[in-house]
Design a protein around this nucleic acid. Sequence first.
RNA 1: GCCCGAGUGGCGGAACUGGUAUACGCGCACGACUUAAAAUCGUGUCUCGUAAGGGAUGUGGGUUCGAUUCCCACCUCGGGCACCA
Length: 794
Amino acid sequence: MKEYDHKKIELKWQKDWEKKKIFSAINGSKKPKFYALIEFPYLSGSGLHIGHIRSNTAMDIISRKRWMEGYNVMYPIGYDAFGLPTENYAIKTGKQPTIINKENTEMFRRQLKKIGFAFDWSRELNTANPAYYKWTQWIFLQMFKKGLAYKQKTMINWCPKDKIGLANEEVVNGKCERCGTETIKKEKEQWMLAITKYAERLDKDLDDVDYLERIKAQQRNWIGKSEGSEIEFKVKGDSQSVRVFTTRADTILGVTYVVLAPESVLVQNLKSQITNWNEVEKYIEKVKKESEQERTKEDKEKTGVELKGIKAINPANKEELPVWIADYVLASYGTGAVMAVPQHDSRDKEFAEKFNLSIIDRPLVDAEEITKRVGGKMVTKYKLRDWIFSRQRYWGEPIPLIHCDRCALNDPDGQGYIPVPDKDLPVVLPKVKSYTPTDTGESPLANISKWVNVKCPKCGGKARRETDTMPNWAGSSWYYLRYTDPKNKKEFASAKNLKYWTPVDWYNGGMEHTTLHLLYSRFWHKFLYDMKLVPTKEPYKKRTAHGMILAEDGEKMSKSRGNVVNPDEIVKLYGADTFRLYEMFIGPFDQTVTWNTNSIIGPRRFLEKVWKIGEKITTQKQINSSRLTLKGSDTTKNFSVSASFQTLLNKTIKKVSEDIESMSFNTAVSSMMVLVNEMEKQDVDKKDFKIFLQILAPFAPHITEELWNMLGEKQSINKSKWPKWDEKKIIDDKIKIAVQINGKVRTEIMVSKDMSEGEIKPLVLKDQKIISWMEGKEIKKFIYVPNRIINIVI
RNA sequence: GCCCGAGUGGCGGAACUGGUAUACGCGCACGACUUAAAAUCGUGUCUCGUAAGGGAUGUGGGUUCGAUUCCCACCUCGGGCACCA
């Protein structure tokens, strides 16, 4: 008997698949298309993570099943390459990021190939490849030309030690991700993308896509749509007024004061009338200095200052109200001013109690009616903010703009930024000596005068390149489009291929990307749709998410904790098939699970059993019968065992087929284990065993391919037809059903399938056990659910 | 505070549309094989009870012939958002 040698088998078939290109997607094929997508991995130096394998295996199973169902499948792979970790590694080691990129790409590719994923390797892409980021830059320029990319002074997170601006995601608990120093707010000019212009559609169009409910909920929560009224409160004795936003216009009669954000322009405009200006100015200064952390600290006491000498008038009842500034009102949301109703709002109440402001209980009115009557309007607001798009970093796509002072003068509205002409794209990232940001917090690109100083593409005068780069969310915002046509030099993808392949049919990824990558890419896609450059409104038809895999100690896997599981070792020791099977069996796919190396042996034993059964079948002379025989048993028994095996086989085909679609991989695996346990006890027919191999193939592609081959098949099992189950065989002719008395199981009886109540009742009442339970009692009710249960109420 | 999700053996977990709770796997115990061990195979493994039988799916109620599943109230844990008016 041959041993199950996973190393030999896995390498053999991985090479074979690659050579025969059996997972190559065909553009424009007449077969129905299926576009399966996983989030391409970020090229970190630590290599492939077992979490990647969870997500990739799931989509791999789905892809392989689709191949077998006759689809033209595209399951592509690429690498997300730009970004901070690579740059930091470059600073630390002095290695060039391009070299690190190359090394990491090779490492990831090698690791992915070892797991045996059915990727179409010919479509591989890398976001840091100039041929790729040419189009990232090009798309950015289209947004710029449409006014969606703009430069604005904004408060950013600043690390005082590193003298560098940080993106929100680079700040962890108010501290610099790199050095741990507490960050402060600093005003800086940044490139922004106007994602808020798409807020309404990003929210509404969620109705039409098949995303997990929690993904939709989280995106909606993040977009933060809220409908309310904008109402003006006139300043007494002045032409100006305070405009407030409220979702509770119906409580307008309960307003007892008005609050402005300390940054509000109106405060400055009313300066001459404010009698306690010194005090007010001091408060505004104090708030400015506060860090984000201090300001949002939990159970922070309410603070504020009254603008003495100022009164606002409630338009609903003409009452005079005191006006305050307080930092609990945010300048960046709504109108930066609120009407305070302590009776109905806990924050207003807390504030009113602290500063002895009155709290009144007035009747409620109709919100829409009152808004109309006081000259206000119904409006919709969003919490979503525009996307801070620039980074003062090296390792990213250069923003392809040139700043020209002369053009800025001639065009007072424009800011003097001229797009790099298409023919000059891509703006290639030049080599630099040091990747450390400059003292001024600018990208190290600013130091390369040869690169920075250029001629203005518009007027030919002296001009300077933009030295900011894009965040790593840029390249990942459209990569799924590039896969459809990865080598195109004229367009980011041809209209023909886009029409054939998009939208992505099924996209699986992590929950952590719900409000970042997933939302950003929907935004880019919608923009491209408006430009008539993509054929669909939404990029992804269906989105699912996998749960995290925690380390054995229940913590997140991290290098510093030293609890990282190395996939290479698992593959070496147990094999890719066992590894894949284990990750699918470990627990519900969408839930967080804990890694347990001890349990891997289970799936391994399972595959050993499969191997043994396969070996036995290949070496044995086949009895030409479609029925099973039980060893050493008489013929009457044979019949019933055979029938029930057919039932089990058909049930398993059904279960596995359906479980794959609902991503219940753990129960699919366990049902196959049940089948194998049964097959072990009997002589299995070759035909039946081959059907079993087919349903196992997406999970454990190598061992099944080998056995399939050993059984005489010349074509790949992946090209065979996915088995169908026979609905008639799902239920046995004879079924064991439970008999309950008053809801408690007392006995079991064997009955024929679909027996009627009239036939079954006398049978039950003849049962010895039932007779003894029934003694002296009367039947109140006899309940029979066909093929399920009997309950007698006495 | 708001929005999701989850509480079932020693552990990971299963249970269709309300129909025999604990499938499958790990671990553990005993047995077979072996000089021995590993591997493998077999048997057992929620709990109380000798048994008949009783009890148990976070807690307390409800609906039902029947509830892990549906309804109400609460507790605990995980994730996301948050002075968002």
